[in-house]
């Protein structure tokens, strides 16, 4: 069952979603520009690349995540995200 959550992300990586075995799509919408990165593993440890790198997003995007994949977000200034 999908659940919508809100996050405020800043200049560090914040985990905003984890994947499921069925590869369900995660919908992300930001109030401003933000960056995304993905990690893989049983443990939830932030990406090893600096915040504000990775994939730049303005507006909204959809990503299919599978089990053990974790989605992280950062932004230059505190930015509200809506994640489902």
């Amino acid at each position: 069952m999908a659940t919508t959550q809100n996050f405020t992300v800043g200049n560090s990586w914040t985990r905003i979603a984890s994947g499921r075995a069925d590869g369900q799509v995660v919908k992300i919408e930001g109030a401003g520009p933000f960056n995304l990165a993905v990690t893989v593993g049983a443990k939830s440890i932030p990406p090893d690349i600096p915040p504000q790198t990775g994939h730049r997003v303005t507006g909204k995007t959809d990503l299919p995540l599978v089990a053990a994949q974790h989605l992280w977000a950062s932004a230059a200034t505190p930015t509200n995200l809506t994640v489902t």
């Binding site: 590869g23 993905v38 690349i49 790198t53 990775g54 990503l63 299919p64 995540l65 994949q69």
Partner: peptide, 15 residues
């Protein structure tokens, strides 16, 4: 600099 993520769009092997 290029950021790349490989997303597995097929059902996971574990399933």
């Amino acid at each position: 600099a290029v950021s790349v993520t490989l997303l597995k769009v097929v059902p996971e092997f574990a399933t």
